[in-house]
Amino acid sequence: MAPSEVLIRKLQRISSLREPDLAVLRGIPIHEKEFQANQDLVLEGDRPSHSFVLVDGLVGSTKYTGDGKRQITSFFVTGDIPDLHGLHLPVMDCTFSTLTPSRVGFMRHDSLRAICDQHPRIAAAFWRSTLIDAAIYREWVTNVGRRDAFTRIAHILCELIYRLRAVGRIDDHIADIPITQAALGDAVGLSTVHVNRTLQELRHKGLIETSGAQTRVQNWPNLVRAGDFNPTYLHNRDPEVVV
């Protein structure tokens, strides 16, 4: 799918755009690039002149502590525009890295600004996108700060499955989760050893299956309960399509 169509689908999932808006979005010049897993796309401290739409793959926003420990602060899936805030905040305050091989489309800030100036519905859709990103960060703070490891990992698996399903990357809830134990640990603030233990507890309860590095969800309704997962914070306009 063309990168502009990926972008349009994302914005249509979260806002109501009209046909003339879609034509404008189709005209945005997008420079596509392929990346391997674990490559940095934008670095903390950068002054980017572009924002990117994730065309395919999985990206994480990451922060490092002074002594080099990594925290993944959010995941981004197909259609997301992880560094859209860079349009208004000149210095990047976190790093964006690929977690799996990914295809990314870069859009110039000056063309995005010109579009926002002239098309308020598009500007509102972009705003809404960054608001939802913030809602996801709030959920993650709650998850990492207050849920025990079992609930925390179940929750993050639910979110990832729900989001991949919402963007049509997977067809049902029984899907491989494309992330390593170490990356999962960095996303939930737990050691790899405890992630490993907790994945096996989830497996013994029949919620997931694991084979090698892959994790596969087995029982979606029970995983949702185990993960204390309520997708309201994802603000999908058609939640019933997903659940």
Binding site: A149, F150, L190, S191, T192, V193, H194, N196, R197
Partner: peptide, 10 residues
């Protein structure tokens, strides 16, 4: 050791 610390917390 990191695993044991997490286990203790839970």
């Amino acid at each position: 050791l990191e695993g044991l610390k997490d286990l203790a917390k839970d």
